[in-house]
């Protein structure tokens, strides 16, 4: 059964949803329904066109879309595109299917979106920007902005694509995305290795006087492997983070306290 109005979404509709997504998504975020009300807000005008104002169908649809929802904010409109494709074909009777689809897709899409857009890209772009920034160069910061503008464009075009392709889109892209994520994480791990070797300016200022011989410890360490100290420290913090009840904030404060103590004892110093 089609909807009563038989409305088909136009380019204008997609633009409206995209505008709302880019500038207002997540503003209603709360502990109870998370992005739930945002999901409704994004496509409320389209729901009204599909079902017509003051109909029981519209009320049912609004209630369905005001439920708990949370996914990665870069990929959420893929789910909304697929959802709208189904609803405009099958009307209010499809709302149960749509509910299932939403909960079924939000987890896997969040996993893909979070790993690429929320951790990997900001980590790599952030590292480049920060690397230049600590040397007083603002150019890397601008690169980051440009990269994110490109990502915004992708977020803009994914909605009509998802609407056209429907559920097939997810299965079609699954394999390719897995290969891409794998290659991207490889690059991420490699870059972190490189950053450890350049951006942690820590050394051991300890100088031992044995009789007439002075031994500068840092020189000895450099003979074994340059940047050994930063490498070991990252390994140590990595291990610390893996312990039970350890959070990133706790780890940061632990490091500050340990650094102050070690600096006072003359074991560690700024390079």
């Amino acid at each position: 059964m089609a909807t009563k109005t038989n409305y088909k979404l136009t380019k204008k509709d997609f633009n409206q949803i995209n505008r709302r997504n880019l500038f207002f998504n997540q503003l209603g975020w709360n502990y109870e329904k998370m992005q739930g009300s945002g999901y409704l807000f994004l496509m409320l005008p389209q729901l009204r066109k599909l079902y017509g104002d003051h109909t029981p169908e519209l009320k049912k649809a609004m209630k369905t879309h005001n439920q708990f929802f949370n996914t990665n904010p870069w990929v959420n409109t893929i789910i909304q595109g697929i959802d709208l494709a189904i609803e405009s074909k099958e009307g209010a009777e499809s709302l149960e299917t749509v509910s299932g689809l939403k909960t079924g897709l939000m987890g896997p899409l969040a996993a893909i979106g979070d790993s690429i857009f929320a951790s990997l890209l900001p980590a790599i772009l952030g590292a480049i920007a920060a690397n230049m920034a600590v040397q007083g160069n603002p150019f890397g910061v601008v690169i980051w902005l440009i990269a994110n503008l490109i990502i915004m464009y992708i977020r803009w075009i994914q909605l009509p694509l998802a609407y056209r392709e429907g559920t097939t889109l997810v299965t079609k892209m699954q394999g390719q995305l897995n290969a891409l994520t794998d290659a991207a994480t490889l690059l991420g791990v490699y870059v972190v290795g490189a950053l450890v070797a350049t951006l942690i300016n820590i050394q051991v200022p300890f100088v031992a006087h044995i009789g007439k011989v002075t031994v500068t410890l840092q020189n000895e360490i450099d003979m074994i492997l340059p940047k050994l100290v930063p490498g070991l420290l990252v390994g140590l913090i990595y291990w610390l983070l893996g312990r039970k009840k350890m959070t990133s904030t706790k780890a940061i404060f632990t490091v500050i306290i340990v650094a102050v103590v070690c600096s006072a004892l003359g074991i560690l110093g700024k390079g």
Binding site: T185, G188, V192, I237, S248, I252, A259, V260, L268, G269
Partner: peptide, 23 residues
């Protein structure tokens, strides 16, 4: 001095957290 050392060491925490999220 200790706080300055801590400031220089803090990126190590960032890298370690990042590694926790990567395979």
């Amino acid at each position: 001095n200790g706080l300055a050392t801590a400031g220089a060491l803090l990126p190590a925490v960032g890298f370690a957290i990042l590694l926790r999220y990567l395979p």
